[in-house]
Design a protein around this nucleic acid. Structure first.
Lengths: 135, 135
DNA sequence: ATATGTGCAAATCCTTTGCATAGAA
DNA sequence: TTCTATGCAAAGGATTTGCACATAT
């Protein structure tokens, strides 16, 4: 799936992100399909594609995107951050051996009961990782 | 709540951990009650208590405990690892502002529907974080 | 013009490692 | 003894930061 640049520009603007060349390239890469990438992977792919971009800009951009809701940052294992192009509510399978993540559509998980938030608090999000092991 | 040293020695042995002085002190601290501590917090508390112990030993011990199932390691935010003295199945609330974790008893969450694992895979664990924000 | 983004290298923070010494079986 | 654990300092890896330069409005 390919996202038209015009769409990307609009999308970034809508989220309050100034669309620069670097940001558009990162957005194009990440938002092309639902996927999970690390900062390192993004940096490598952009450079392989002939782009001149710094590690700092990749991190700045990913953090900005996550803060603005363009993408979602996942804390999977503490080793490194994963950036998820899918910002809709959903959950994840994780292969504990490879670390690979797979999206779970929200309707694949249904909660029969969830605790009420403590007084003075409200839900800010539900993070669900189902760890998988090879049989 | 205080855990008798004898109990601790048995507990470590049962999990295949050689009970040394440092390991017993860390176990005593962590297993005293259901709680979540970082390596740094454990190091500080032990030293405040007058113990001479190195950072390396704290990390070695916590990793060993986690591998042997004495405690559980949590990847909450990617900043640092949290060590959970509660090894029973359970879930967590997390205050997104302070990072503080609270245990959720397993019966407070009930799944109406969960996806079957992909072919050749089986469940290895279910990690659920409910992020909370101040109203 | 003025504010904001980018690149580079150095700095930071958490965690692991190498190796010599100390302790357990 | 022989094996394993501990302490220390240094190494490692991911991420952030300071600052000069470039780019956007």
């Amino acid at each position: 799936m390919h996202v038209r640049p015009v769409t990307l520009v609009e999308r970034l603007k809508k989220n309050g992100v100034l669309p620069t060349a670097q940001r558009l390239r990162i957005a194009a890469l990440l938002l092309a399909s639902p996927q999970h990438l690390t900062a390192e992977q993004i940096l490598c792919r952009l450079r392989e594609g002939g782009m001149r971009i710094s590690k700092a800009t990749v991190y700045n951009t990913l953090n900005l995107f996550a803060a603005k809701g363009v993408i979602r940052q996942l804390a999977v294992d503490g080793d490194r951050a994963w950036f998820d192009s899918n910002t809709e509510p959903h959950y994840h399978f994780q292969d504990i051996e490879t670390g690979a993540l797979t999206d779970l559509a929200p309707q694949e998980v249904r909660f029969d009961r969830l605790p009420s938030p403590p007084p003075g608090m409200e839900y800010a999000g539900v993070e669900l990782f189902i760890r998988l092991r090879r049989v």
